[in-house]
Amino acid sequence: MSLRKPKIVVIDDSEIVLEVSKSALEGAGYEVVTHDRPAGCVALILHEKPDLVLMDVNMPGLGGDTIVSVLGKAAPTSDTIVLLHSSLSAEVLRSKVSTAGAHGFIQKSGDLFGLVREVARWLKRSPNSGNMKAAIASPSEDRLSGTRPAAPAAGAASDSASGLSGRRPSGTLRLDAPTVLLVDDDMSVLSGFRRHLQNDDMSIEFALSGGQALRRMLSDTPPDAVVCDMLLPDISGIEVYQRAVTADPTFRQRFAVATGASGTPSVMSFLATFKGPVLYKPIDAAQLSQAVRSCLAGVRSFAKSGARP
């Protein structure tokens, strides 16, 4: 009998924080519910009965610490772990934790693997996730002094990156409303990429690791273009490209590289033969948009010609 996935509610007024946090936590085996405003938070939490809540502090209208105080009065015996989730200093957050009655806090840092590791530590479990397992294996020291709260027993694992080497027939290329997959394990980079492309007529998706990117790329509805970092925490961007092209050769036309590691021998060797767009960090909006449109143009040309890559 399969065990229930732990449920996490993430409350934040930032769409990018919600999207990348949800993607990272779901990839680690959690069920994730998101909410983008203070209004309705308490009712949502009482209805969902999550194992853990990540509560943003600075939101328009009502601060997350105030919401936590209200929640404590509404459900004083709840087993839910409530954590403040903010980029405020540790000193300020400790004070707000004490005042609001939260269990603790996790600082926003852009480190998504760190976020998953901290959530796992608070839940006192080690998610059996192929993508996140290495990052979770050595939990960091507690950022707050004192005993951490016990959590409900939980299980369930996400699918790993295995089984992706086989060939898959290429899906029908969608030439309208193209989907762009952005692959990077740094939340700040993904946020910047999203801002750069926000005025383009594209559907933006995220992957936070190589394994997650491959699963998306080799799905029945693959993205039209991929912008992939070279140094990822599980498998490299080089391997992502090679395995994707083996399964679907059209990825030669729709893959762009984003890297800050041009001096790494393996990356230099790969770039010497790679024929797609190469972006060197920091990347501005014009460069990113041009690279994505170059990938999309190559896909359209290939689709019209019917030629083999």
Rank of each mutant, 00 (worst) to 15 (best):
V42R: 03
V53Q: 14
D56K: 02
G61F: 00
A28P: 04
P38F: 10
V53T: 07
P60G: 07
A28E: 00
I45P: 00
C41H: 01
V33C: 12
E48Y: 00
G40E: 05
Y30S: 04
I45H: 04
D56M: 08
V32R: 07
D56I: 05
C41I: 01
R37P: 00
L25A: 00
G64C: 05
P50S: 12
K49V: 12
D56S: 08
L46I: 08
A28Q: 01
I45D: 03
T34E: 04
L44S: 13
G64D: 06
A39D: 04
D56N: 14
A39E: 14
E48L: 06
G40R: 08
L44N: 14
A28I: 03
V57L: 09
L62I: 08
E31P: 04
V57P: 08
H35R: 06
Y30E: 00
D51P: 09
G64K: 01
Y30Q: 01
L54Q: 07
N58G: 11
Y30F: 15
A24I: 02
V57D: 10
V33L: 11
A43H: 05
H35N: 06
G27H: 04
G61C: 10
V57R: 10
E26Q: 15
T34F: 07
G63W: 05
L62A: 06
G64Q: 04
G61N: 13
V33G: 03
P38L: 12
H35V: 12
H47R: 15
D36Y: 01
H47I: 01
D36H: 11
A24K: 08
V42N: 13
G40L: 04
P60F: 06
D51T: 02
P50C: 09
P50Y: 03
K49M: 13
P38Y: 01
A39Q: 14
C41N: 07
D36K: 00
E26M: 15
L46W: 00
G61V: 08
E48C: 12
H35S: 05
